[in-house]
């Protein structure tokens, strides 16, 4: 038996450990860095002292509207969330929803995109706040309503449910179109994140509030929402924004949610905290 000297030399020549132990990776395994909290997990502002009795009281309202748009030919998921503070009218015949903010999330192929995502400028929020969305009540203590129309930049429609909305081509001289946010542009102005710019537009929302369920605690009122949204651009700071993609409603996940809050609760708090505020809402 002879020593395989060439084999040994070959072995030595190919020696290499090639392993790596990373102390930071180990620390990360031992002490995981907390993931950034979701909106739902963030602490929320004080909601004051909620005092609701039936539909009486002060409510934070969220209208979650699911839909689909196809700006580039492929369907993108759209979620429009309108936030309001609400209370019954003095006469008790309607629930008045005062607009606080609108949050729009667009998912392209499952990923969030800012392409075409609008934001509501403060001037528009103020303007919409002054003209509450009025939801008539059945009068029997329940909450339900059909074909509630909510107009942006429009007034005086003869048949609010069915009239065609003005377009860029024909809005000139149309008295129904108003500068609701007083910014010298027709209709209302929304900011678009990408491509960045402003769109001047009119908008109609038609909502049907299916009968709501009032929680035993009287802290929640929730129900199915049926919606139809129509937007027409009247102009834009960037011509690419002048085309508003049609929104196809989806029933799944479309709902309304009301949470009883104190009288001191503000739009600013709701705007910031709505995800967490409504995370425990009954389904």
């Amino acid at each position: 038996m002879n020593l395989r000297a060439p084999g040994l030399l070959l072995l030595l020549a190919t020696l290499s450990c090639g392993e790596h132990s990373d102390g930071l990776e180990r620390l990360e395994a031992l002490y995981p860095t907390p993931k950034p909290k979701t909106e739902e997990e963030r602490p929320i502002d004080d909601i004051g002292t909620p005092m609701c009795n039936g539909l009486d009281g002060n409510w934070a309202v969220r209208l979650v509207q699911k839909g689909t748009i196809e700006p580039l030919g492929q369907p993108w998921d759209l979620t429009v969330t309108d936030l309001f503070l609400a209370s019954k009218s003095q006469a008790g015949t309607e629930m008045q929803l005062r607009f606080c903010n609108q949050d729009v999330a667009i998912l392209a192929d499952g990923k969030r995109t800012t392409l075409g995502q609008p934001e509501t400028p403060a001037t528009l929020k103020s303007a919409l706040y002054l003209h509450p969305l009025r939801v008539p009540l059945p009068g029997d203590g329940t909450f339900a309503a059909r074909d509630v129309v909510w107009l942006w930049g429009l007034e005086g429609l003869a048949n609010p449910l069915t009239d065609a909305l003005p377009t860029k081509a024909d809005y000139q001289g149309d008295a129904r179109v108003i500068d609701q946010d007083n910014d010298s542009f027709p209709g209302v102005t929304v900011n678009v994140l990408s491509p960045s710019g402003q769109r001047y537009m009119v908008r109609r929302g038609i909502f049907t509030f299916e009968p709501g369920r009032l929680a035993l605690s009287n802290q929640w009122l929730t129900g199915v929402l049926v919606h139809q949204l129509t937007e027409h651009a009247l102009g834009a700071s960037n011509t690419t924004l002048e085309t508003a993609a049609p929104i196809t409603p989806r029933a799944e996940g479309t709902m309304y949610q009301l949470r009883c809050v104190g009288s001191t609760y503000t739009c600013a708090s709701l705007e910031k905290d709505h995800a967490a505020l409504f995370k425990d809402a009954p389904r």
Partner: peptide, 23 residues
């Protein structure tokens, strides 16, 4: 000796707040 590579990692926390990290 052909060793494996070892990277030393260090962190300092105050409560749950990470004050420092180095490797």
């Amino acid at each position: 000796i052909f060793p494996e590579e070892v990277t030393f990692g260090l962190r300092a926390y105050q409560g749950n707040t990470r004050l420092y990290e180095a490797s």
